[in-house]
């Protein structure tokens, strides 16, 4: 039995200028915060931006951006709500923040369903918040989002980069476009990630210093935009545009 959803996904994504998958292979390295704030930063620069939270079992972009009391509307599909200038889509609209236990095949099915029914409106950028791991979601993203460019996050730690490196090498082996690597949660300047970027022929896109004040700004756009963390991500956005 043929899956008709695959035929229409390309059509749904054709009006998107650039698709950026924010990934890193590991959990807890700031993918959701970076994805959310990168979307916001690009939107504030005047671009049409979409944010897709693909971390289906643990979505959290809505928490970062304080998105609540909104829902997609139906018109020949699903129209994502626009919040603070960003078109936002997440499975959380349908799970009501309950635990979402999905196995790999179910994750793939849910991703295809979301892509089939979501109608983005003329985006310059679609930012995808990727789940951790090198598994189903990664291969689905590569297969379904043809031309998506990967932005990889790493902390300054050699331990973290060891995992990021595996993802980087895999993407390079698969000839997937790599936008570059961002050094996140930076505490100190050891030059390690910059050196690794040179060694592995990946662009260094910028650094985001650890900001202890960010937690108090979570969920409040005005406070977020005053943080050093947002300013650092805005610098990364400058390097992308």
């Amino acid at each position: 039995m043929k899956d008709p959803r695959l035929s229409v996904i390309e059509k749904r994504l054709k009006n998107i200028g650039k698709i950026i998958a924010v990934s890193g292979g590991k959990g807890g390295i700031g993918k959701s915060v970076t994805s959310s704030l990168l979307s916001l930063a690009l939107s504030k620069k005047g671009y049409n931006v979409g944010l897709l939270d693909l971390d289906l079992t643990s979505p959290s972009d809505h928490v970062v951006l304080g998105i609540k009391d909104v829902a997609p509307t139906e018109k020949e599909g699903i129209i994502p709500p626009t919040v603070n200038g960003v078109q936002f889509m997440s499975v959380v609209f349908y799970t009501n923040e309950n635990p979402t236990p999905l196995r790999g095949e179910e994750v793939s099915n849910a991703i295809k369903e979301i892509l089939c029914i979501t109608r983005w409106n003329n985006l310059d950028f679609l930012i995808i918040d990727m789940p951790p791991g090198i598994g189903d979601e990664l291969f689905d993203t590569i297969e379904l989002f043809q031309g998506a460019e990967f932005l990889l996050l790493s902390t300054s730690s050699k331990i973290v980069f060891e995992t990021v490196k595996k993802l980087l090498l895999l993407l390079q082996e698969l000839n997937v476009p790599i936008l570059g690597i961002v050094e996140n949660m930076k505490h100190y300047d050891n030059g390690y990630i910059k050196n690794m970027c040179k060694k592995h022929h990946a662009p260094f896109l910028g650094e985001i210093w650890f900001d202890k004040n960010f937690e108090n700004a979570v969920g409040n756009i005005n406070k977020i935009m005053d943080t050093q963390l947002f300013k650092d991500i805005d610098g990364v956005a400058e390097n992308i545009v």
């Binding site: 695959l6 229409v8 599909g77 699903i78 029914i117």
Partner: peptide
């Protein structure tokens, strides 16, 4: 009407065939 998007997928598949 979310059904439209699914119908669109069916027709798109038939057009490709």
């Amino acid at each position: 009407m979310h059904e439209w998007a699914l119908a669109d997928a069916v027709i798109q598949t038939a057009v490709e065939v």
